[in-house]
Nucleic acid binder design. Structure first.
Lengths: 238, 238
DNA sequence: CGAAACCTTGACAATGTTCAATCACTGTGG
DNA sequence: CCACAGTGATTGAACATTGTCAAGGTTTCG
C-alpha cells in the first residue's frame, strides 16, 4: 500500500509534483472486490474519487419510484467522483457496485480538492481527461440519435474488441445482457432481437455471452455507416 | 477593443492573473454578427476558442453524404473550441453560424494553450466549466433515453424560461423549429405533432414561434416526471 | 434436482419516421 | 398593391422501430 510507483502510469498522475505523488501515495487505497460487491454506497460516493484499474463496475441510483437508474459503467482507466472536486450545493450521489471481479483505487475528495488547487500539472491532467470524457459523451449523444438498436450493440462490440489486447478469437460480454441493454438505451427484449438481427447481418457467431466476428469489416461497415467521427473503428482495428 | 474589463465577468477569466488578463485583452476579438452570418468556417474553427455573450449560434459539419450534422447550439455563456486546447491528432472541425444576431468574442487557441499551461487559476476555471458541461451532457443522455418527444420539447421550454430574465409573459423560440427538432433528436414532423400534444396536455398557448405558459407547474410536472436530477426546474423557477 | 435469475420469443401497443401534399409567412419585383 | 416564389410548418397515411406484457426456455448454483 505504501508503494505508489503504479500511480505514475495513471494518466491523472502523470508528471505531477513529487509532493503530490507523496501525498497521494499516503492516502490512496487500492482494493480488490468480487463480482456483486458494493464498492461505495450513496453516503460514501460523494467523498470518493475512484479509478478502475481492471474489471467492471456500475454506478446507479434509485429513482423516486424505487427503480434502478444506471448512471455509468466503468472499466479500466475509467473513473468517477471528479464532479465532487468542485462541489456545488446539489450533487448527484450514487452507489458503485462491482459487476465483475475488479481492481481499483480510491482517494478522498478533500485531498484531491487540495492537491488540484495547488498542483498545476494535476489540474491540467484532470482538464485533459475531462475534455476527453466530454468528447466521448458527445459521441454517445450522436449515436443515440442516429444509430438503431443493432448498430449501438455493434458499436459496443467494436469497443470491446479494441479493449481486447490479447486478440483472442472470441469476445466475452463483460456483464449481463439486460444491464448492457439498459446501458445502450434499450429494453432487454429489444437487445435480444437486435443482437440476433446483427449476427445475421454481419456474420457473427454467438454462444451465450461469447461472440466471434467472422468479418470485422462487415460489422464496421454496418455500425459506422452514418457516424460523424473522423476515424471510427475502421482505422483503430487492424 | 483594448478595454478588457468585461472579461472579468466571464467565468473562464474570473480571478486569473493580471498577466493573463493583459494577454487576453490584447488578443481577444469581440464581434457582432447578423443572423445567418458564418462566424467560423472549418479551417478557422480549429484555431479559435469562441465565447457567446448574447444571441445564438449553431455548430455543424457535413457528413460524408453532404447532409448537415448539428454538433451543438450555443447561447450566452456557452463556448466552443475548448477541445483544441489539448489537440490530439484527429479533431473534429466544424462551421459556426449565427442563427440570431449575436455578440461574442474569440481567442486564438495557441494563446490559450500557452496561458492554461502557465496560469493555474485559468486551468482551474476551465476544469470547473468542463465538469459542468460534462454534467449537462450526462443529463442530455438520460433525457434522450427516458423522455418522449413532447417531454424533451417541454424541457427545452423550461430552460428557455430560466434564461428569460425579464420574466416576459411570452417566450419566443430563438430559432427555427426544424433546427430545434434536430437539436432535440427528432424529425420536424414529430416536433410539430409533439408540440401540439404538449400544448393541450400542459395548457400552453402557441402562436407561431411564441409560447405562453398558463401553468408552469403543469409543464414541470409533465416534463420532469422521471428525471433523476436532484432539483429539476421545480425549484429553479419561482 | 430444483429454485432463482436471466434470456428469448410472440403478440400487440405506442412512438417516431418517411413521404407527399398542403398551408402560412416573407420578401421581391412588376 | 398584388402576384409569386421560396422557405418553413403542418397534416395525413403508411411504415418501421421500439416498448410492453406474458409465457416459456436456459443457465447457474446451492
Amino acid at each position: 500500500m505504501r508503494d505508489g510507483t503504479f500511480l505514475q502510469n495513471i494518466p491523472i498522475f502523470c508528471n505531477v509534483s513529487d509532493i503530490t505523488l507523496e501525498e497521494v501515495t499516503q492516502h490512496v487505497k487500492r482494493s480488490l472486490y468480487k463480482k456483486g460487491d458494493i464498492i461505495l454506497n450513496t453516503a460514501l460516493s460523494k467523498n470518493a474519487f475512484l479509478w478502475v484499474m481492471q474489471g467492471w463496475a456500475k454506478l446507479f441510483k434509485e429513482s423516486s419510484k424505487g427503480e434502478e437508474i444506471i448512471i455509468d459503467i466503468l472499466t479500466e482507466n475509467n473513473y468517477c467522483g471528479e464532479q465532487f472536486i468542485f462541489q456545488s450545493e446539489e450533487m448527484d450521489v450514487y452507489t458503485v457496485q462491482a459487476i465483475s471481479d475488479i481492481e481499483l483505487f480510491t482517494l478522498p475528495v478533500p485531498l484531491l480538492q487540495k492537491l488540484v488547487s495547488v498542483d498545476h500539472q494535476l489540474a491540467l491532467n484532470f482538464l485533459r481527461n475531462t475534455l476527453e470524457k466530454e468528447k466521448e459523451l458527445n459521441m454517445e449523444i450522436e449515436h443515440l440519435s442516429i444509430q438503431n438498436a443493432s448498430q449501438r450493440i455493434g458499436c459496443f462490440i467494436l469497443k470491446l474488441q479494441a479493449l481486447n489486447k490479447d486478440h483472442t478469437d472470441w469476445l466475452h460480454l463483460p456483464y449481463d445482457k439486460s444491464l448492457l441493454a439498459t446501458r445502450l438505451g434499450m429494453r432487454a427484449e429489444t437487445f435480444s432481437r437486435a443482437l440476433a438481427k446483427l449476427s445475421k447481418q454481419c456474420d457473427l457467431e454467438i454462444k451465450n455471452e461469447s461472440i466471434h466476428m467472422n468479418s470485422v469489416d462487415k460489422l464496421v461497415h454496418y455500425v459506422c455507416e452514418h457516424c460523424s467521427r473522423v476515424s471510427p473503428y475502421k482505422d483503430i482495428l487492424q
